Simulated assay, not measured.
Amino acid sequence: MSPARAGVPVTDTSSSPAETDPLHALVLGSLDEDQAQDVVSIPLQGKSSIADHMVIATGRSTRQVASMAVKLAERVKKAGHGAPRIEGLPAADWVLVDAGDVVVHLFRPEVRGFYNLERMWGFGDEAAVAGQA
């Protein structure tokens, strides 16, 4: 289910502050390059101390989810942002990539629909979620 259909407001990331946050821009670019689907970025500043951004994306298969996670971690490390922690890689139904200021959740479609993180983190805030198709 896309974020818009889940009742979560979605806006285009081209006007978001991603240009001012190199790590966030790197994450979004990496996911775009790897053909992630339904990419959503939720700003967490002022909501949580865990990160500045939470990015949620879908892969078509466990193989694609795992590949996106590994490539993202390599790109983040190569860009000098440190080595991200990766959780959930063996099953690759839901993989978490913790890159510090940006936390990335990569899902298979049915797992993403079940957990519906966008709704949990974007509730009640019209401008809370920024997505890209």
Score class of each variant (00 low, 15 high):
55 V>A: 09
36 A>R: 06
53 H>W: 15
50 I>N: 00
36 A>V: 08
67 S>I: 00
57 A>E: 02
44 L>H: 11
39 V>A: 09
62 T>G: 13
58 T>D: 06
52 D>N: 14
62 T>S: 13
50 I>F: 14
49 S>E: 12
41 S>V: 13
39 V>H: 01
52 D>T: 05
63 R>L: 11
50 I>A: 12
41 S>Y: 05
55 V>S: 07
49 S>N: 12
36 A>H: 08
49 S>F: 12
65 V>M: 04
63 R>M: 09
68 M>P: 08
58 T>M: 01
38 D>Y: 06
48 S>R: 11
55 V>T: 12
68 M>H: 10
47 K>G: 00
65 V>T: 07
66 A>Q: 11
39 V>P: 01
44 L>C: 10
48 S>Q: 02
42 I>M: 15
54 M>D: 03
48 S>D: 04
58 T>A: 13
37 Q>A: 14
56 I>Y: 04
44 L>I: 08
53 H>F: 15
52 D>K: 11
51 A>P: 02
62 T>D: 13
40 V>R: 11
53 H>L: 07
47 K>F: 11
48 S>P: 06
65 V>I: 08
38 D>R: 13
50 I>L: 15
41 S>N: 12
61 S>Q: 07
60 R>F: 00
36 A>F: 02
59 G>M: 03
65 V>H: 01
59 G>A: 08
57 A>Y: 03
45 Q>T: 14
67 S>P: 00
54 M>P: 03
53 H>D: 09
40 V>C: 14
54 M>Q: 10
39 V>Y: 02
57 A>R: 03
42 I>R: 07
47 K>C: 00
55 V>G: 07
66 A>K: 12
68 M>F: 09
59 G>N: 06
59 G>P: 07
41 S>D: 13
57 A>T: 04
55 V>L: 08
56 I>T: 11
60 R>K: 12
44 L>R: 10
58 T>G: 02
44 L>D: 09
53 H>V: 10
43 P>K: 12
68 M>E: 05
39 V>D: 00
57 A>W: 01
63 R>H: 11
42 I>T: 12
58 T>Y: 01
67 S>F: 00
42 I>N: 07
67 S>V: 00
51 A>K: 01
41 S>E: 11
38 D>T: 03
44 L>A: 10
47 K>L: 15
45 Q>Y: 02
41 S>L: 14
50 I>P: 00
53 H>R: 14
44 L>K: 10
39 V>N: 02
51 A>T: 02
46 G>P: 04
48 S>Y: 04
59 G>I: 03
53 H>E: 03
58 T>K: 01
57 A>G: 11
50 I>M: 14
38 D>S: 14
44 L>F: 12
62 T>I: 02
61 S>W: 08
57 A>I: 03
53 H>C: 04
53 H>P: 00
46 G>M: 06
57 A>D: 03
68 M>C: 09
57 A>L: 05
49 S>P: 11
61 S>P: 04
66 A>E: 05
